[in-house]
Design a protein around this nucleic acid. Structure first.
Length: 185
DNA sequence: CGCATTTGACCAGCGC
DNA sequence: GCGCTGGTCAAATGCG
């Protein structure tokens, strides 16, 4: 998965509307992702979309029952022979956001728990894997930097949150960025 | 003490 | 079939 088709769009251009139509509903509805992007980037800002290999995945189907399906390093000899898990090739749609930021942890309003980190080929920076800590929420995201421009962070979301954002919106910068959105900048 | 992170190992998919 | 690589698990460790 080295090369994904990434479509760039400027947040101030009219093409955003068409682009956001592909985003998960939680992103389109409350623009938290964009607001955080704005708060972290006064200058150069990029929003990218990563099309997944799956055409359409209903949000309700995002409940990967494999939440308990530890097939990884667990080395379980039983190796879950009772798997109903036939949809292994069915992946949730993934969306990538390429932003300029000094920090690679972009607070999008959800609580994430890091569950892995891998070195990426052709990239000196590792890729971090996060999972939403909300119970029953299987949304995942991965964050990596570009080796070319280490100021650019690519955040890839997989799945759709089925719960409200649990964030303390008392952050002044968030409130300010929201005001900027509602006022049309 | 409870929760999040780190980190090495494991597994599956893919290309050769 | 073998080896590489991406993705995940889970024990150990860190931290508030």
């Amino acid at each position: 998965m080295d090369n994904y088709p990434i479509l760039f769009s400027s947040p101030s251009s009219s093409s955003v509307a068409a682009t956001t139509s592909h985003f998960p509903s939680y992103m389109v509805n409350n623009n938290h992702v964009f607001s955080d992007v704005h708060s972290n980037n006064q200058n150069g800002l990029f929003v990218a979309e990563m099309k997944s290999e799956i055409d359409v995945i209903p949000p309700s189907s995002s409940n990967n029952s494999n939440s308990s399906g530890s097939n990884g390093g667990g080395d379980n000899t039983d190796m879950k022979s009772d798997k109903k898990k036939v949809d292994k090739k069915v992946r949730n749609p993934r969306y990538a956001f390429q932003t300029r930021s000094q920090v690679d942890i972009l607070d999008d309003g959800y609580r994430w728990r890091k569950y892995g980190q891998k070195a990426v080929k052709n990239n000196k920076h590792p890729r971090s894997y996060y999972r939403c800590t909300h119970q029953g929420c299987n949304v995942k995201k991965q964050v990596q930097r570009l080796s070319k421009d280490e100021g650019v962070v690519v955040t890839t979301y997989e799945g759709v949150h089925a719960h409200p954002i649990e964030k303390s919106t008392d952050n002044f910068e968030n409130i300010l960025s929201q005001m900027q959105i509602y006022t049309g900048y």
